[in-house]
């Protein structure tokens, strides 16, 4: 059997155009040996989940800096579950107040990486927590 690769969708939900982090991490993930599908801007939760489905992704990484995380992140998790993709690891980052994190985690987002997180930490978390399929 050939070596398995981690496939990750990097997505920007909503109208927020700040994609420095998303693009930077796409490159870092690829350098860490992952196969990265970057969806671009203005993604609805439905579009993100459809991408995860067709690409058979292991991980979905969401980035939001416009304060819409409490709406979009749980919505993505909910739709993934509805499509029998509950195994997909969902992580998020951006401008997210620390006090929102417990609720987001309760709703199924595995981890939230705030500003200043080292990229090694993010890559390490994904590699340690991705589920096999």
């Amino acid at each position: 059997m050939a070596e398995k690769k981690i496939k990750i969708i990097v997505a920007k939900p909503g109208l927020d155009g700040h994609d420095r982090g998303a693009k930077l991490l796409s490159r870092i993930f690829a350098e860490a040996g992952m196969e990265v599908v970057y969806t671009g801007l203005r993604q609805t939760p439905e579009m993100i989940v459809e991408a995860a489905l067709q690409e058979d992704a292991d991980v979905v990484g969401l980035s939001s800096l416009s304060g819409v995380h409490n709406y979009f992140f749980p919505k993505v998790v909910e739709l993934l579950k509805a499509k029998k993709l509950g195994n997909v690891l969902v992580v998020g980052g951006g401008i997210i107040p620390l006090e929102d994190i417990p609720t987001l985690k309760k709703l199924g987002i595995a981890e939230i990486f705030g500003p200043g997180t080292s990229t090694d930490t993010i890559v390490g978390f994904i590699k340690a927590n991705v589920k096999s399929k």
Binding site: K5, A30, A32, G33, E35, V37, Y38, T39, G40
Partner: peptide
């Protein structure tokens, strides 16, 4: 690195 950036979906 063995990784890849798959950009066609955009």
């Amino acid at each position: 690195t063995g990784g890849a950036l798959l950009g066609d979906r955009i």
